[in-house]
Write a protein that binds this DNA or RNA. Structure first.
Lengths: 244, 244
DNA sequence: CGTTATCTTGACCGTCGTCAAACAGGGTGG
DNA sequence: CCACCCTGTTTGACGACGGTCAAGATAACG
């Protein structure tokens, strides 16, 4: 007889990596009621203008925040990987100001918002953990603003790839070998403020320079430090070495 | 004999407008120890890479967050008006990932971080208020990303002006008459990802269109709805009508 | 195996950046 | 009160980065 693993464990691990949680705190998080759901590519999790009722944890797959402009342009605001809690952003806001959408097929756990709000108020260590993960998200958002506002196409694309590879990096494996890239060039463009055509040109140019290598939906990094250099990337803003 | 007004009152008012605080909560905030300081234009309040020890409240004047890129470009990340708490962003982070600087001469109250951290943990209503103001900042940050990534020069500048006028608007007075604009064109450019030269051209063009009017350091809005339109501005993201 | 989304490439064009110089304003000191 | 400087604004000429449009190649998927 096998013990089923609680899907929320990935959320607890994420929190523990940033803030110290007691055994009780961890237990309270694992005891949260949730409904698990499988979503197809491009499904909306939250829509702009809606009142959010749930917070959800991304169990597998990738997702992104997104906002569209009346002229038709779409801006991707952040990218999320398994273990991320989507919609902490809306924990106390009455109305969502942006959309959250899956990038690939995903599994998601929906937690009714009141339960998480109760934990925020009742257990200050969890409150701190929630706030901390919001602070890290805000920091990444600031770096994206710098990216779009002050780097040229080459730097923008390189920076996005550096960040993505750094974030999904598993601790044992060296950063910079290769990773799966679930984004289309259209989506990369929407994230860094370029047209898909120019993203294509930029990627090809980076590839002929020997800074990266593409194959089906993966991306390899033959010259990781060269790419870091091209991106002007410094991982400080990810606050990954924040002590717990 | 006059009763001196506590400078922290503006912070408490700000919190109260977003989240419900009890009389005790308000008292605890007003009882925070602080040192008041007058700062000249361009003074650094927090520097990138530093460990923040204080949180500070902007009592008068204007300030901004900023990040510089190795190529020399500077990106302004947010603008702050009196009553804002700078450096809630660093409440739980070991190292700051950006600079905070005054835009004009300012008065600032420095609160040692541990005291605010204690209130966050001890009084959950204050914790909620802190989190809420971070959520609103994050929302503004998202809108800025959309602004820089997906609007043209005209829209970007117009949008910045709309946001600024909306935020400093005092409840009684109608938005859109006129307001003081403490930014140089250089700073406007750093905020929206343009060169100062092009900001100048854009402002002049908006002025000849009759969408705004400039005089010394003030800006008037003869056609407020026209400017809103040019900016594609919707105030939803400011979450100003968030119920307390 | 056909249909659709995504990628790729080329030619052309426009928005915005760059460089440089003149102009206005506000403070300081003689 | 005026010369002076410094910062910020204004304007023009020119060039480049990236957008637009369009067509063909490739890959994904039912």
């Amino acid at each position: 007889m096998t013990i089923p693993i609680n899907p929320l464990l990935c959320m607890v691990r994420r929190f523990e990596s940033q803030a110290h949680l007691s055994v009780d705190d961890g237990g309270a998080l694992l005891a949260l009621p949730f409904t698990k759901q499988a979503l197809g590519e491009g499904s909306y999790i939250v829509r702009e203008g809606q009142a959010p009722t749930h917070c959800c944890v991304l169990l597998s797959g990738f997702a992104y925040r997104q906002k569209t402009h009346s002229n038709g342009g779409r801006q991707i605001l952040s990218i999320h990987i398994p273990g991320d809690i989507l919609d902490l952003q809306n924990l106390f806001l009455d109305v969502s100001d942006h959309n959250v959408q899956t990038m690939t097929r995903s599994e998601v756990a929906f937690i009714p918002r009141p339960y998480l709000v109760d934990l925020f108020h009742g257990r200050s260590a969890i409150g701190k953990a929630i706030l901390l993960s919001l602070l890290v998200e805000a920091s990444i958002s600031r770096e994206w603003l710098l990216n779009v506002g002050r780097r040229d196409a080459r730097g923008r694309v390189a920076h996005l790839l550096c960040e993505f590879a750094s974030r999904i990096n598993v601790p044992g494996e060296p950063v910079g070998s290769s990773c799966r890239l679930p984004m289309t060039q259209q989506q990369i463009g929407d994230a860094v403020g370029l047209t898909p055509v120019h993203v294509n040109r930029t990627l090809r140019s980076l590839e002929t320079e020997g800074l990266l290598h593409r194959s089906n939906h993966s991306i390899g990094f033959p010259d990781w430090s060269g790419l870091l250099n091209a991106a002007g990337f410094s991982s400080l803003y990810l606050h990954a070495d924040q002590q717990a």
